[in-house]
Amino acid sequence: MTAAITFEDVHQSYRGPDQAVLRGVDLTIEEGDFCIILGRSGMGKSTLLRCVNGLVQPYQGTVTVAGRQVSRHKSTLRGIRRRTGVIFQGYNLVNRLTALQNVLCGMLPDLPGYRALLGAFTAAEIERGLALLRDVGLENRADQRVDQLSGGQKQRVGIARVLAQEPTIILADEPVASLDPVTSEDILSRLRSISREKGITVVISLHQIEYARSYGERIIALLDGRLAIDTRGSELSPEHIDRIYGLSPERARG
């Protein structure tokens, strides 16, 4: 197995080293991993994900994606971002565009500049966009503006947009935090089957322990800016949960 993402001694802070969010994270995520990050709010889950595609630059340490070190260097960064899809808690779709147009946005970086600016997509690209929407069960919504879709549908458009990038890695930052339980399970199982079928590395930050236990093949947890737990989903114990959230095991079980 080769490493998809490697963190080496990663430190990051938004307000100076005293209040560092990440204080030396060492972590290797293998290709094809389906990995869930747990941790209380403010423990650096999002920051860790953002370090992978350079939305956040650590002030110390290195992050390596598919053998390339994440840096401020523009073309390196854009190269990494092209194959690293991101799914957001707030969907981050362009509301005034249709579902199909949002999916096609995922293909823009691979298009020549003038076609990207004009939105001149070929019939083949549009067909691929429709196929991706079909995969997430939204083909009949292709021409609907996304602000008319439900939360779950929006997140499925988000997944289709990410797949349009033909990613090797998918990062999902609390993808189900604003969704109901049924829809949440739908989104998570879609992501898991995408990971299994296409061999895509998927890293998800979550705060629902139950989902982490049932979907996470690998679970890591951050505590005080460091990696505190790295275990298999099936082996996630109440003691682990107590360490992450500072709950008693009884309450964590309930």
Partner: peptide, 25 residues
């Protein structure tokens, strides 16, 4: 700012991001 962040995350350049994330809004 969400859509802008999303477009940047796909590796799109500045002009493409303006065209697809800012102009429609």
């Amino acid at each position: 700012p969400g859509p802008t962040e999303a477009l940047e995350s796909t590796g799109a350049g500045a002009f493409t991001t303006i065209r697809w994330a800012i102009v429609p809004q």
